[in-house]
Design a protein around this nucleic acid. Structure first.
Length: 423
RNA sequence: GGAGAAAUGGCAGAGUGGUCGAAUGCGGCAGUCUUGAAAACUGUUGAGGGUCACACCUCCGGGGGUUCGAAUCCCUCUUUCUCCGCCA
C-alpha cells in the first residue's frame, strides 16, 4: 500500500510510472488526495470536539469534588451536545477512512525506474541467459510422459484422492523431490539464511499485510469454518513474522528461508500449458525473504538473483532471467526478475523463480519499520524470491536429463538422492 | 471439548471510576565522575494522528456498551496459563 504522503509529494511521477503498468492513475490519485484532505479536516474537527468534552469532564470532576453539584449538572447538559456531534463526526471519519483505504488497496506498487513498459509477458526484457540446451535423442518425451513411464509421479491417483492439480510423487520421484528441497535449503543456509518451518494456514490480517487480500482473494483456498487461508507461498507467513515490528540498526540484515507446500486455486486455468507439473494446486517451494534498509534493498535483490543463478548452474539447467515489464509485474512489486528454465521436450521456458523487491509497499501494510541511529523511523524494504519452486525444476530435470538409459540425476543431487539414475 | 485464572510501556510489575499515558524496578540513551571502563549519581526514554512548531486527539489484548468521565464497571471475541477430557 502506498503512503498518502508519498502520493501527495510525487503524484506526477507516480502517474507517469503507473503508465508502464497501463494503470491510469490520475483520477484515483486525485480521489485519494481529496479523501485524505477531508479525512484530516474531519479528524481535526473531531479532535476539537473531544478536547472540549475532555475539558468539561475534568471540570465536572472538580465540581463534584467541591460539592457544587448544581454547576456540574449544567455542564453535563453541555457535554450531551458535544457527545452527539463527536459521534456524528467519528462516524463520518470512519466512512471517509474506509473509502480511502478501499481506494488505496486497489493501487498497485509503483514500478521501479528500470521496469520496462509493456502489456504482457511478451514485453519482458531478457537480461541474462546461461547454460546449454541439450540436444535430446529421438523419441524424447515431455515430463508427464516420463513420469508415467518411470512411475515416479501419479496424476491419476491425485485426481482420485483430491482432484486435478494434486499429483502424487512416488518412489524415486518422491525421493528426488525431497533431495531438491534439502539441496535448496542447504544452499540457503550456506548463504546465511535462517531456516524456518512455518504455519501453512494464515489469518486474514497476514493476507492483507503481504497483499494477497483483499484483491486476490480468489487465489487462496479459504477455510471458512475458521476463517483461515491456505498459504499460496511461504512469503505470506514468513514476511508476516515481522508484522508490527520496530527494528533497530542491529537487526539487519534479516534473511530467512523456509520450505513449504503452496496452495493455489488457479481458478480459470486450463489447457495444454497447465499439463503435468506446469501448473498445480499444490506444489512445493523453498522461499527466501529479506528485510532490508531502503538503501540496501537493491543490492540485496542482486544478491538473491546471484544466489539463484548459483543453484541453476549447480543443477546444470539452461535458464534465462527476465526483467518483468510493467504489465506483467505483480501488484505488490516494484521490480521483479523471473527465472525460467528451458524445458527441452516441451520446447518452452518454464518459470521457476520470481524475485522481487516490494520496497515499502508491504512494509506499510505490515507496519514494519526501523529506527535509525538518530531515532528517526522509516519503513523497511521487503524482498522475496523462490529458490526454487519445485515442480517446474523437476520438469526441467526430467526432460533435460532424459537419455535412452533413463533419467540421469544432476551430480550435486546424487549424495542426497542416493541414486544417480531413474530407470 | 469442559472448568477456572489472566492479558498494562523493550521487559518485569503497580494501578479497580476523575490531576493516569500510566507508580516503581530493570533495560536503553545522554551527562557527571574516571587515563579508560565498570560502579555510583543526575537527567532522559512508548506508539499513531495532527501542526512550520506548539496546542490538541487516539491507544492499557481486539470489538461493543454504561458514564459528564473507563486501564479500572458490563457484554463479546481472541490469546495465554492451570486442571480435566481427547489425541499425533
Amino acid at each position: 500500500m502506498l503512503q498518502v504522503s508519498n502520493i501527495r509529494a510525487n503524484k506526477e511521477v507516480y502517474i507517469a510510472a503507473f503508465k508502464k503498468r497501463n494503470f491510469e492513475a490520475e483520477t484515483i490519485l486525485n480521489d485519494v488526495l481529496s479523501l485524505d484532505e477531508s479525512r484530516r479536516s474531519t479528524q481535526s474537527q473531531l479532535d476539537e470536539t473531544l478536547a472540549e468534552s475532555n475539558q468539561l469532564s475534568k471540570e465536572i470532576g472538580m465540581l463534584f469534588k467541591t460539592g457544587e453539584t448544581q454547576k456540574a449538572g449544567i455542564l453535563k447538559e453541555k457535554t450531551a451536545r458535544l457527545k452527539e456531534s463527536s459521534k456524528l463526526l467519528s462516524e463520518e471519519l470512519n466512512t471517509i477512512t474506509a473509502k480511502l483505504d478501499a481506494l488505496l488497496y486497489t493501487i498497485p506498487n509503483v514500478p521501479h525506474q528500470s521496469v520496462p513498459a509493456g502489456v504482457n509477458e511478451e514485453d519482458n526484457e531478457e537480461v541474462f541467459k546461461e547454460g546449454e540446451i541439450p540436444v535430446l535423442a529421438e523419441g524424447s518425451l515431455p515430463h508427464w510422459e516420463l513420469a508415467k513411464k518411470y512411475d515416479i509421479i501419479d496424476f491419476e491417483l491425485g485426481n482420485k484422492v483430491t482432484g486435478a492439480g494434486f499429483p502424487v510423487y512416488k518412489g524415486k520421484g518422491a525421493r528426488l523431490q525431497r533431495a531438491l528441497i534439502t539441496y535448496f535449503l542447504n544452499k540457503a543456509a550456506e548463504a546465511g539464511y535462517t531456516e524456518y518451518q512455518l504455519p501453512l494456514l494464515v489469518n486474514e490480517a497476514s493476507g492483507i499485510a503481504t497483499g494477497q487480500l483483499p484483491d486476490k482473494e480468489g487465489q487462496m483456498y479459504h477455510v471458512t469454518e475458521d476463517d483461515l487461508y491456505l498459504i499460496p507461498t511461504a512469503e505470506v507467513p514468513m514476511t508476516n513474522l515481522f508484522r508490527d515490528r520496530m527494528l533497530t540498526e542491529s537487526d539487519f540484515p534479516i534473511t530467512c528461508t523456509g520450505y513449504t507446500p503452496c496452495f493455489r486455486r488457479e481458478a480459470g486455468s486450463y489447457g495444454a500449458h497447465v499439463r503435468g507439473l506446469n501448473r498445480l494446486h499444490q506444489f512445493d517451494k523453498v522461499e527466501l525473504v529479506r528485510i532490508e534498509k531502503p538503501e540496501n534493498s537493491f543490492e540485496a535483490l542482486d544478491g538473491m538473483v546471484d544466489h539463484i543463478k548459483g543453484i541453476l548452474r549447480d543443477l546444470k539447467l539452461p535458464y534465462r532471467i527476465l526483467r518483468l515489464c510493467g504489465g506483467d509485474l505483480g501488484f505488490t512489486s516494484a521490480l521483479t526478475f523471473d527465472f525460467e528454465v528451458f524445458s527441452t521436450a516441451q520446447d518452452r521456458w518454464l518459470e521457476i523463480s520470481s524475485v522481487s523487491n516490494f520496497e515499502t509497499f508491504q512494509a506499510n501494510r505490515l507496519k514494519l519499520r526501523y529506527k535509525d541511529k538518530d531515532g528517526n523511523k522509516h519503513l523497511v524494504h521487503t524482498l522475496n524470491g523462490s529458490a526454487l519452486a519445485l515442480p517446474r525444476v523437476l520438469a526441467g530435470i526430467l526432460e533435460n536429463y532424459q537419455t535412452p538409459e533413463g533419467i540421469m540425476i544432476p551430480e550435486v543431487l546424487v549424495p542426497l538422492t542416493g541414486f544417480d539414475r531413474i530407470d
